[in-house]
Amino acid sequence: MSIAEEVNCLRRIPLFANIDTSKLKLLAFTSERLSFRAGDVLFQQDEMGTCAYILLRGEAEVVVTGPGGPLAVATLGSNEIVGEIAILCDVPRTATVRARTDLETLCVPKDHFLQMIADFPQMGLEIMRSLAHRLEQTTMRLREVLAAQAT
């Protein structure tokens, strides 16, 4: 997959929908392509994060380890971004992310990501929207799981 295709992929992510093609190209060029096999861990909960991942192809699951053991809270597919929380606010990873299938990702280092947000405020807004959406989904899922445990 060449940069041009990666840019097409990025374009489909709402976060980057309104960004200049040349900037997306720059983002792709300065990011590392990483592939994972099914079952590989992208990152572990509680580690410090250095990059966010953009899923190009394949699926990944988000697992939270709580007092009750590991709990799968979400599944992510292509054109989604994951791991941006830890690099946005300098906290340890809030969950473990594992490849469910063979996975192609673009690994965006923290400093590049923050630079992009600073350069393009539109991106910041999109991130806010996407985070809010994600939070809502996670909460719903957690409620379901708790309800299932209670019965």
Binding site: E32, R33, L34, S35, F36, D40, L42
Partner: peptide, 9 residues
């Protein structure tokens, strides 16, 4: 006697 492969985590 080779190069590490790019794209592997």
């Amino acid at each position: 006697f080779g190069r590490m492969v790019y794209g592997q985590a």
